[in-house]
Structures are given as C-alpha cells and as structure tokens.
C-alpha cells in the first residue's frame, strides 16, 4: 500500500466517524463564502457601474464672456497644464442657445421672447480615464474654477460625491465582512479538526508509537481541510450564482439592475475565492495538527 492510499483510507474513515462535525464545518465554510462573495459581487458591480457612468463625466466651466480665439488658446493651454485631457470644447452663447433650443424640440417656441445671448458661454472638458477618481476630479474642478474668466464649474458634484462615499462604505463592508468570515471559517475548521484530534487522541498516539511518520498523521487532516475549503467554497459560490440568476430573471428589464448591468464574478475571481478558501481551511487544519504533533 502506498502512502497516499493509506492516507485516503484514513480520510475516509475519519469522515465516516466524524461526519456531524464535518457537516457543521462544511456549512460554516459555505455560508462564510456565500456572504463574503455576495458583498464582493455587489461591490464589483457598483465599481463597474461607477466606471460606466464616469464615461459620461464632463466638467462644464461657465465663463463670464465669450473668449476670443487667442484666449481660447490660452485657456486650452492652462487646462492642459493641469493634466492632459480627452477633449476640450468651447461653447459660445449662440451655440449654447442653439443646443438648448434643439433639446427643447417642439417646445422651443418658449425661447422666442428670450435674447439669444442669455445663456453663458462655457468650456466642456472631458477628462482622461486616469483622472476620474473622486479626489482628482475635485482638484481638477477647483483648478478650472481658478481659471481667469471662470464663473462656475459643474460636473454633478453631489452625485459623484454620494457615489464615491457609497463605494467607500461598500469597500469597508467587503473588507470587514471578508476578514470576519475568513476568521470564522478558519477557526471553525481548526476547531473541528481539534475536536477530531481529541476524539482520536488514543489512535494518534498509538500511530506514533507504531512508527507512523508525521506526514502520515498530518496528511489526512490536511486533506480534510482542503476538502472542506473546496466543497464549502464551491457550494457557497453555487448558491450565490443561483441567487444571481434568480435576481437577474426576476428583475430584468428597465430598472436599477438594468442600469448597473448586473454581472457575475469573473472566473478568475471565482478561482481566487476557491483557492483562498482552500488555503485558509488547510491553514486551520495544519495549525491544529501541528500543536498535537509537537506534544
């Protein structure tokens, strides 16, 4: 009988004898993975939504007067001095009036009595993707406000700010829930293995006395940890996927989910979660058996 055959026989025997505590650990790992992955899924979708919405982000600098060609050149240079931008577009009073009229469509006759220069001239600045962090945009808008002739800068500050704080809150929730659930799962696995070790203390001591190597004693427990991590994470993620499918089916169509283009975790991240779960469960298992073997 080779080493691995002997080890797998031990694993089978152990699973058979301690199936109740093994089941409890398996459920804890599954639930931990499910809760963590659920928050993470929401977090990644929020980030994705933020990215998509920021594609439309532009800063509008309202000016006191229509700038002449020379001043336009100077302003363009000033803006580029802060950072390269994707696009700079000067909108004169007349152009602003035309745009507004177009937007009003059939109702444009409400503008009939209005002077054609009642709207302020502006500069529309589309920042580069690299400049779209909340703090960067804030700094950039303050810089634009300080430009000569600038009256006001608008970029949907309130919305951007709220979204920024919401994603920050979600990041904290993901990190905290992740940490707590990781600790829970690791301790549960370590505790189950410790219970198993205590229940089999006589056997393990006998194994040492009849010449079992430490690897022979340790390997079955490590395999149990790996199995708990693997099956627990797969079941947890499968439950999350089922939940995701249910939400997608029941809430598809126009609505907030459509706006956010709700997507499941990419395969690489699923693999990372499964590997992480396996690593943590093995760690819990290893730490327990190490204490016994030191004894």
């Amino acid at each position: 009988m080779n080493f691995w055959l002997a080890v797998f026989r031990q694993v089978g025997r152990n699973l058979h004898q301690t199936w109740t505590s093994q089941l409890m650990t398996f459920l804890t790992v599954s639930l931990s993975v499910l809760i963590f992955a659920f928050f993470y899924l929401i977090y990644t979708n929020m980030l994705g939504a933020g990215d998509r919405l920021s594609d439309d982000l532009r800063l509008i600098v309202y000016l006191e007067e229509d700038p002449g060609p020379e001043m336009q050149q100077q302003l363009r240079q000033k803006i580029n001095n802060f950072d390269d931008v994707e696009k700079i577009l000067f909108v004169s009073r007349a152009e602003a009036y035309e745009r507004f009229a177009t937007q009003l469509g059939e109702n444009s006759d409400v503008l009939t009595d209005m002077p054609k220069d009642f709207l302020p001239p502006s500069i529309e600045v589309v920042p580069l993707q690299s400049l779209r962090g909340y703090n960067k945009i804030k700094l950039f808008s303050e810089y634009l406000k300080s430009l000569p002739g600038a009256e006001k800068v608008q970029y949907g500050q309130e919305w951007v700010e709220r979204f920024y704080y919401f994603t920050r809150l979600l990041t904290i929730v993901v990190i905290l829930s992740g940490t707590l659930l990781i600790l829970t799962a690791t301790f549960m696995v370590a505790y189950t293995i410790r219970l198993t070790i205590m229940g089999r203390r006589d056997e393990l001591e006998l194994l040492k006395l009849v010449g079992a190597t430490n690897s022979y004693i340790r390997a079955p427990f490590l395999i149990e940890g790996i199995l708990q991590g693997l099956t627990g994470s797969i079941i947890g993620l499968s439950a999350l996927y089922a939940l995701f499918r249910w939400i997608s089916l029941h809430f598809e169509g126009p609505g907030p989910l459509n706006l956010f283009q709700f997507t499941f975790l990419p395969f690489s991240e699923v693999l990372i979660i499964v590997s992480g779960s396996i690593a943590l469960c093995s760690l819990g298992s290893y730490s327990s058996i190490r204490k016994f073997l030191k004894f």
Partner: peptide, 22 residues
C-alpha cells in the same frame, strides 16, 4: 527525531501492559 524515529519504531513491536487497543 521525526521520520528517523518513526522508521525505527516500525521495527519495534510493543505489546503494552494496558494493551493500547482501539
């Protein structure tokens, strides 16, 4: 220590007074 001790113990059979049976 470790594997060396384990391998030597495989060559020693002991029948204990308290049997140490499972």
């Amino acid at each position: 220590k470790g594997n060396d001790l384990a391998h030597l113990r495989q060559k020693i059979g002991v029948a204990y007074q308290d049997f140490k049976l499972l």
